[in-house]
Amino acid sequence: MYKRFSRYFPIFVLPILAAFIISFAVPFVMGIYLSFCDFTTVSDARFIGLENYKEAFGESFTHSLWYTALFSLASVITVNLAAFFLARLLTRGFKGTNFFRTVFFMPNLIGGIVLGYIWQIIINGILRYYGVDITFYEAYGFLGLLVLTNWQLIGYMMIIYVAGLQNIPGELREAAAIDGATASMELKHITLPLVMPSITVCTFLTLTNTFKLFDQNLALTAGAPNRRSAMLALDIYNTFYGGVGSEGVGQAKAVIFTLILGAIALLQLYLTKRRERDV
């Protein structure tokens, strides 16, 4: 049976492989090549070596790098804590649990741009009573983005944690209770170790999603004031389209961005996975 199917292997894999090569592998390799070029359009590039990389590390890039790192850190903590807390609440068998799970999940279905504009209206609507708006300080933009990201991601992460919590066998908890474990001991020694796989997935998703956040940033602040609230992805976009002949610099920044994101994500996976094995 297996042999008969394996003959068809190339035919089954071909469409996806073709799509992967056309829409991922080729653009990725081309993108790396273009970061060493001076170009206006992708099909008309001139090799110039490391020039773009020299220019890439400007003030705006380093600022947005720190801004993004800080933002990712803050969101990973707040999103995961809130999602875990909600998941605990919604696995206790309250009445209407399913209703609340749906409600909390819904914000995740709205697109980033729309969400950005909605929150811009809400936040400006509140701030106007104090005679200011979100463009006044970069801290306003930071907090605004944090609220928005939490609102969008908590529901999704909550679902993953709910699944993780439901997988914990009831006997374990029961046994712990009989042995006289308090609620916090149970949380520390039973629940947390057993939902570690969910924690790995959720921290990975929040970390990468917030690090490469773009639409929400564009719609909520667009970098105001004076690009101080522009995160990395937005800074790359602004560089690429912002001036005559700076496409290559934008591309170089994008390559650096990919490397940083890859490194951070791998490090995080390594750290949380290690905890999983300890169980």
């Binding site: 970098g223 004076n226 690009r227 389209y241 912002g242 001036g243």
Partner: peptide, 12 residues
């Protein structure tokens, strides 16, 4: 000179 300049002028 370009969009970047104009945007920075606007935010100033």
């Amino acid at each position: 000179p370009g969009t970047s300049f104009k945007n920075d002028f606007g935010s100033a």
